[in-house]
């Protein structure tokens, strides 16, 4: 099953770094950093989807990546104050996908 193969670490590292920049830019509420994070995580999701969603593992990865994107969206377009703790948690979820 192609969906079960390991993800390229480099791509995930880029996504993690982009989230880190968005978190670091919290005082400036820098939308560009969040935008970059969305692009990078979306690219990871595309990579997973491209290699198939037939296996339970691939579907779990996609679920996790969608959850990460939901939380980044919450930081990027918050309903009230940005939920930084949740964004940090989402970063952790993404890091676990790497494992």
């Amino acid at each position: 099953m192609r969906g079960a193969r390991s993800l390229p670490n480099e791509r995930i590292e880029r996504a993690l770094a982009a989230i880190d920049r968005a978190i670091a830019a919290a005082p400036e509420r820098d939308g560009a950093s969040f935008s970059q994070a969305v692009q990078e995580v979306s690219a990871v999701r595309d990579e997973v989807a491209t290699h198939g969603r037939a296996t339970p593992e691939a579907r779990r990865r996609l679920d996790t990546l969608n959850a990460v994107l939901s939380m980044i969206l919450a930081g990027h377009f918050p309903l009230g104050a940005p939920p930084w703790d949740e964004v940090r948690k989402a970063r952790g979820w993404l890091a676990e996908v790497q494992l």
Partner: peptide, 19 residues
């Protein structure tokens, strides 16, 4: 369940970003 603003403007920007 919502997490953030899903009105049209953020969705447009999220399209540009590939989400």
């Amino acid at each position: 369940k919502l997490t953030g603003d899903l009105s049209y403007e953020p969705i447009t920007l999220s399209m540009v970003d590939g989400m």
